[in-house]
Amino acid sequence: MSRLRRSSKVMRLWDWSVPPTSAHREVLSIVPEGWIDAPRATRKPPILFVHGLAHGAWCWREHWMPAAAERGFPVYAVSLRGHGDSGGRKRLGRTLLRHYVHDVMQTITELPQQPVLVGHSMGALVSQLVADRYSPRGLALLTPAPIQGAAYEMPKLIRKRPLDAAKVLAGGTLPLRAEQLFTGLDEATAARYVDRLGRESPWAQYELLLPHRIGPVRCPVLVVGTPDDRVVDEKAVEVTAAAYGVDPVWLPGIGHDLMLDGGWEKALSVVLDWVDERC
């Protein structure tokens, strides 16, 4: 069962006739000194981080961006519209995944060369939709929202957290609590992060329930999951990895937000080692 298209999708009628509107974008960046003048063939590729549901570029700025820049990578993180300090908050109720794809594509065109895309959760799905039309240097999918659609998770959500399920179905933002996102943080830090979470577009959330077909993807792909993830289950990670014909890398002991949780250093080194080796 392949979830990837075998050949290119040329016809994008919807994008041609009703193009996404634009919105102000927050793009955080750290470019190591001397990088821009180094020869293109030998310098480390840029990394573009795409955050997940209700998060923002800030979640990468906390630990990963400075640490990756320290290792010589120019790093960028975009806040999708309606998130972080990007614009489009008022229109969030009319925002679709295609708008997020547009925001990432716009950010990419401002980068000096093809980046490695690192997407987390919903951002991993957005990154795959970007790779559907653009060839990044590499594609890293961290605790990815299921490519097969999250609808299969709804019965479990209804059973375990009926109020959350009702809220999502009514168009509210999926509540993400500290105990779902983190396993190894002190209470105060976890609360501080949860406080920064914003709202999500109801339409984007509904789209997460649906299956997505993408491809062909021609770049190296990395899929990272954790058995201690209480938002994206192991099956979602396995199906996504299988779609690209790779084995997922499992990081036990770290929660869903592996760029913020205790143990983030380990997760980051898995990603950066892969970039160094494969991209």
Partner: peptide, 15 residues
């Protein structure tokens, strides 16, 4: 012609 189908599909023109 306007941007959406005039630009390279993998490198959109700036907003």
């Amino acid at each position: 012609s306007t941007k959406p189908f005039t630009q390279f599909p993998d490198f959109p023109m700036p907003d």
